[in-house]
């Protein structure tokens, strides 16, 4: 659905030239929800603006939804939806007017534009708001209208720039449900940017981590977490923790995928390749060696841990 090679964008202001995006390669398959994760200023929006024909790349090439970005931007525009961070609905217009006009701008006949507006109101929980002025909508409603605007022409691919920034936690979770449903019902490919780890984790099939204009890691949320830091299992034992350590390190180390053991008082902190698979093996081994187990806990690393490992900085610092 998207293939991009070496996308670059340099901004020139006065004498300085800033490389906002320095060579991004992308491959997105149909039906995927791909998250573009990175701190503010990492180049997310610039990349998105290039992919949506708003900004001409300084270098590189891309094929979007079957059309060449550079030679056929009109073809790209017809096949994609784009929802900017700022939204893009007119506060002085009514909800239905905006939806129908947007459909008409996408060359839908008037009746079809009205029908699509109705379908989208239904899908995105906007029914009963058709005659409301956009400026009177709540934050969550307005954001759902933004998304609806990007979907009027049933594009096979939609770009969402920070779809939930500024929403309260409840509206955010609600938005995730809507986005996931758009994909499952229409098989729409979704490419979204976010700096919320929970969002990328909850919503995306695959994540691209971008920092300082370059993609620094990519994979499914699970892969990324596993590859970068492994899972952490914390054990509390009744007897001598050294007994437990010996059992796990010697006999079962291979089966567990043990990388590291750290003992503190009665507690063992194990770093393993795959926590889900290691848990039963650990319990079996300890039981077999008659080591008394008081508690066991699996901690999956967050995407923040991933970001920290890949870039040496925490995403959370950026948000604060």
């Amino acid at each position: 659905m998207i293939t991009a090679k070496g996308l670059k964008r340099t901004f020139r202001s006065r004498k300085k030239s800033v490389e906002a995006v320095r060579g991004v390669d992308l491959a997105v398959a149909p039906g995927e929800i791909v998250g573009f994760l990175g701190p503010n200023g990492a180049g997310k929006t610039t990349t998105l603006r290039m992919l949506t024909t708003l900004l001409r790349p300084t270098a590189g090439e891309a094929t979007i939804a079957g059309h060449d970005l550079l030679s056929d931007p009109g073809g790209v525009r017809r096949r994609i939806g784009y929802v900017a961070q700022a939204g893009g609905t007119d506060s002085g217009a009514k909800v239905e007017e905006e939806l129908v006009q947007q459909g008409r701008l996408y060359r839908l006949p008037a009746a079809e534009a009205r029908r699509r507006a109705g379908v989208l109101r239904e899908q995105l929980d906007l029914n009963g708001l058709e005659d409301r002025l956009v400026k009177t909508l709540s934050g969550g409603q307005r954001r759902r209208l933004d998304i609806a605007m990007g979907l009027v022409h049933e594009p096979p691919l939609v770009f969402l720039d920070e779809p939930t920034t500024g929403l309260d936690p409840q509206s955010r979770a609600n938005m995730w449900t809507h986005i996931a449903r758009v994909r499952s019902e229409l098989n729409t490919t979704v490419f979204l940017t976010t700096h919320y780890l929970e969002e990328a984790d909850a919503l995306c099939d695959r994540i691209l981590v971008i920092d300082a204009g370059e993609i620094v890691a990519e994979g499914t949320p699970d892969e990324l977490k596993r590859r970068v830091s492994g899972d952490i299992i914390t054990l509390e034992v009744g007897g001598d923790p050294e007994d437990a350590r010996r059992v796990l390190a010697n006999g079962a180390g291979q089966a567990i995928g043990l990388r590291e053991v750290d003992v503190r008082d009665q507690t063992l902190r194990l770093t393993v390749t795959e926590g889900d698979r290691a848990l039963p093996a650990i319990m079996r081994e300890l039981d077999g060696a008659a080591v008394e187990l008081a508690s066991i806990r699996l901690h999956r690393p967050t995407l923040d841990d991933v970001f920290l490992t890949v870039t040496g900085r925490s995403l959370r610092d950026e948000q604060a």
Binding site: L54, I80, A84, G87, G88, L105
Partner: peptide
């Protein structure tokens, strides 16, 4: 005002 609300940009991504 329209530019600030993103209306212009939104329309520029349509085939209009």
């Amino acid at each position: 005002a329209e530019w600030r609300e993103g209306v212009i940009e939104r329309m520029r991504v349509t085939p209009a």
